[in-house]
């Protein structure tokens, strides 16, 4: 049985796809057989972030409709063993995903994978509800910014009421907070909500803090998940978060401003 994890946020543009790609890739690097499923029907982007956009032949909706089998649609990553991507369809039919169809595909994936990462679309419509419905765990991606925190709280409410676990009265979906685009210098100046502030408001366990980093844009430009950039702060922060996801205790890094050298102190930069 696979662990089904939804990466969600409510608000768009906070880093769901970047995080799905990084976490999925990182889990596969640890030797876990992992598939990342793009639920953003009509606006797929996981393929681009993973650098496999030219290898998409069949997609999630084709599999649901029986136009292709799962193995035809799964794209095997060429860099990391045991990593697969199931791309979303570019159809405009917003009801292309059905609960039965999604369940069938997830059941089949569950037989061959250790982890299923569901990359949710923004919003609280059909696609987002489908992405979270079957989840055992949720990673709520949040920026230290008012609208993102508020939307994350909404999504937590939906996880607690609209997921399969909620409807069937099972153990609740396990909630994890992933704070992204964190800028320690701005926090220290009092211009940005701190980790503690966001934790206090959302009141869920903290999985990771990803610093605002140039490496993230570079990674998406190249189509290489940021964890493959091992030198980068963001890549390392994601690897820490993945280790925590697997039950390890890891100290939080990148929460304070990097020490500036004497020249930078004087001349700025």
């Amino acid at each position: 049985m696979a662990r089904i994890i939804v990466v969600t946020s409510g608000k768009g543009g906070v880093g769901k796809t970047t995080s799905s790609a990084a976490i999925g890739t990182g889990l596969a690097l640890q030797g876990k057989k992992t598939v990342i499923v793009d639920f953003d029907i009509g606006l797929r982007n996981l393929d681009l972030i993973m650098g496999v956009e030219r290898r998409v032949v069949y997609d999630f909706v084709n599999v649901i409709n029986g136009e292709a089998n799962l193995n035809q649609a799964l794209i095997k990553d060429k860099r990391v063993d045991g990593l697969f991507i199931l791309p979303a369809s570019q159809t405009r039919d917003k009801d292309a995903l059905t609960l039965d169809g999604v369940e069938k595909v997830l059941d089949e994936l569950s037989e061959q994978f250790d982890y299923i990462i569901c990359d949710s679309p923004a919003g609280i419509e059909q696609g987002a509800l489908m992405a979270l419905y079957f989840a055992d765990e949720a990673i709520v991606v949040t920026n230290p910014e008012v609208s993102s925190v508020r939307d994350s709280d909404r999504i937590l409410g939906i996880l607690a009421s609209k997921s399969r676990r909620a409807e069937k009265g099972l153990d609740p979906v396990k909630e994890n907070l992933l704070l992204t685009r964190y800028n320690p210098s701005r926090v220290e100046r009092g211009d940005m909500l701190s980790v503690e502030d966001v934790k206090e408001i959302l009141a869920i366990p903290l999985l990771g803090v990803i610093p605002e980093s140039q490496a993230v844009l570079k990674a998406s430009n190249l189509g290489e998940p940021v964890v493959l950039d091992e030198q980068s702060d963001a890549g390392q922060a994601y690897l820490d978060a993945i280790s925590r996801l697997e039950g390890n205790e890891v100290d939080f890094r990148f929460l304070t401003e990097p020490k500036k050298g004497i020249f930078k102190r004087i001349f700025g930069g």
Partner: peptide, 14 residues
């Protein structure tokens, strides 16, 4: 500070 205003507003609306 802007961050503490943000926190107070969020606590109330949430």
């Amino acid at each position: 500070k802007a961050a503490s205003v943000a926190k107070e507003r969020l606590q109330i609306i949430v």
